[in-house]
C-alpha cells in the first residue's frame, strides 16, 4: 500500500513535468492541446475515495496552473472532472464488476470500455476548461473546435501510452 502510494507520488511529478516541459509546446493546428495530466486522475485505483480524488485533482490542477499562468483555471476543471469520475465508473461497471485492488486501465478492461470511460470525462474537463478561459460563449464554435480537437489528441495519447505501459503496472 505504502509502496503504491510512493509510486503514485512519483507519477504525479512525472505527469506535471511532462505536461509543462513537453506537451505545453505541442499544439496541433493552433487548436488541439494535449492535457495528458488528466490521465493521472483517471487512472487512480478504484478504491480511492471521492474526497481524496477531488483533493488530488485540485493539487495537480494548481500545479499545472502555475506554469500556464492561469491561476485556478485548470484546478477548476480538474476538480469538476474528479468529482464525476467515480459516479461515471459506477454507471459503466461491466457485468462481472471491477477486480478489487486494480485501476481503471486499458489492459484490465479492454479498449472499448476504456474509450467509453475516458472520452466523456476528458470532454467535460476540456469543456469546462476552455469555456471558463474564454469567459463566455462568444466564440462558441471556435471554442468547440478546440475542445473536440484537444479531446481527440489527449485521448489518443492516453490510449497509446496505455499500450506502451507494461501489463503489470497499475498506473
Amino acid at each position: 500500500m505504502i509502496k503504491s502510494g510512493i509510486i503514485h507520488i512519483i507519477f504525479f511529478f512525472v505527469y506535471v513535468l511532462a505536461q509543462v516541459v513537453l506537451l505545453k509546446n505541442i499544439v496541433l493546428f493552433d487548436s488541439a492541446f494535449c492535457f495528458l495530466y488528466v490521465a493521472f486522475i483517471l487512472l487512480l485505483p478504484f478504491e480511492v475515495s471521492i474526497t481524496m480524488i477531488i483533493l488530488i485533482g485540485f493539487l495537480i490542477g494548481i500545479s499545472i496552473d502555475i506554469f500556464y499562468n492561469s491561476m485556478g483555471l485548470h484546478a477548476f476543471a480538474t476538480v469538476f472532472m474528479s468529482f464525476l469520475r467515480n459516479y461515471w465508473l459506477s454507471v459503466i461497471t461491466p457485468q462481472g464488476g471491477y477486480e478489487s485492488g486494480s485501476s481503471p486501465t486499458l489492459a484490465a478492461n479492454g479498449v472499448q470500455w476504456f474509450l467509453v470511460y475516458t472520452i466523456p470525462l476528458v470532454f467535460i474537463h476540456h469543456f469546462v476548461l476552455f469555456f471558463t478561459e474564454a469567459s463566455g460563449f462568444d466564440l462558441f464554435w471556435f471554442t468547440m473546435l478546440k475542445i473536440i480537437g484537444s479531446m481527440l489528441f489527449t485521448v489518443l495519447v492516453m490510449v497509446l501510452l496505455q499500450f506502451l505501459a507494461p501489463q503489470r503496472r497499475r498506473i
Binding site: 477531488i54 485540485f58 496552473d65 491561476m71 485556478g72 483555471l73 484546478a75 476538480v79 469538476f80 471558463t132
Partner: peptide, 9 residues
C-alpha cells in the same frame, strides 16, 4: 474547492 478556484480565477 470549486469556490476556491473561482476566487483564484
Amino acid at each position: 474547492l470549486e469556490l476556491t478556484c473561482v476566487w483564484l480565477i
